[in-house]
Design a protein around this nucleic acid. Sequence first.
RNA 1: UCCCCGAUAGCUCAAUCGGUAGAGCGAGCGGCUGUUAACCGCUAGGUUCUAGGUUCGAGUCCUAGUCGGGGAGCCA
Length: 464
Amino acid sequence: MSQRIKVAAALKNGPIGALVDVRGWVRTRRESKQGFAFVELNDGSCMANLQIVVDQSVPGYQQFIKQLTTGSSIGVIGELKASPAKGQAVEVHARELTVFGTADAEKYPLQKKGHSFEFLREIAHLRPRTNTFGAMARVRNALCVAIHEFFQSRGFVYVHTPIVTTSDCEGAGQMFQVTTLDLARLAQKQAELDYTQDFFGKRASLTVSGQLEAETFACAVGDCYTFGPTFRAENSNTTRHLSEFWMVEPEMPFYDLNDNMRLAEDFIRSIIKYVLDHCADDMKFFAERIDKTVLETAENIVNHDFARVSYTEAIEILETCGQKFEFPVQWGTDLQSEHERYLAEQKFKRPVILYDYPRAIKSFYMRCNEDGKTVRAMDVLVPRAGEIIGGSQREERLDVLIERMQECGLNPDDYWWYLDLRRYGTVPHAGFGLGLERVLLLLTGMTNIRDVIPYPRTPKHAEF
RNA sequence: UCCCCGAUAGCUCAAUCGGUAGAGCGAGCGGCUGUUAACCGCUAGGUUCUAGGUUCGAGUCCUAGUCGGGGAGCCA
């Protein structure tokens, strides 16, 4: 009787001498005219391939051996043995081999060679079969597990905030509209859109943040977090932006900004450590093939405190550092990419938390400081990926919040339910948003955010 | 959306001053080998992104467009 096992299991502590059943896709075949062949089998369970030794005595050898091209799928039943040659500890000596599906070597796009990421993006349905994207899938998975473990172990409640929203006013950028109206027909008629006839009876969009809804749960069940897809219809064409990305948003009652910063720091450190501990082979691959510094960077984050400076202090540092910037440094304006990069990559060489930003450049819901000029906002900046966290202590005072809404040109009536949190049992609270893909940039050393998500959505791109 | 760069074989790229289109890898075939990004030989493979223009002659120069990459802004 054969035992079906994954390649990862076979390589790790496979039962030497046992008859195993392994299935997957052929990476390469090295054929000998002497009547045997070596086949590298990969099933995605780990980075490494399992070497299959196929002798011509295996039934059907002459028929199947030429079909074992890169990309073909096979099942092998054979004995797991210690390998006599260098390069692998174990190998499988085939007794039976089944070809599930062939892959025409002249047409199959993935070759036995390196491909550019630009090319692989055009065949995103096949790129998970490559080393880089297989590793990415496993690291991304581990990171998501780490996120849940972190919060669950601290008693946070996982809350599903809505994807579709009718609060047209979340304020965090352009939104994708959701409609069942027949736009093509309405365009011909050139009629005014009547949203009362639309599916939800009013204008609806995809969420740009689950924060406001998360706050309602934080003010009920306590510490909680949302983790899901987020949509921004900005016309951003950069290596750091996606139209559809995944965001983690914890929200905690009775937290002030310092508690928030401490949690953010523990959180990042913890999830990175988890990936280092659980994806050693994949991380080693990124270190060897993508960016030599990734392990160093990750360990540096795990082992050192983040720098913390107020916005005002950061401005002083930038003004006096002697570095020449393309854009001027000035109190009251947002920091430019080059400024943030200087702070994280040159000045501190580790993650930096900036806090207490000018109120004029931040959102209405951030708590106003007593100085009247700043709000209790924070951004976590890291080398390479830039801003991976944005958060704040929330304004819990009803009158101040209403005033701020008006200052920001928003109509408080639209936020009646959000304001109710301040009307009934208001509490100080805080939270932040973490961009999952930006953590992956930081972790893996990949430089384009389109290569850390399975199917990237960016302006003009929603293939597959 | 703005700025810069690019598009040549399946992939990655080369082609001098404007003068008959090349390599490596991949693929096929053969050789060799307990091989392992194997190695050696041979073969096939091209509307040089599209449409105009300049020229005796355009991969190369000009104009427009399409697509791609990088940077900026917006942010996570």
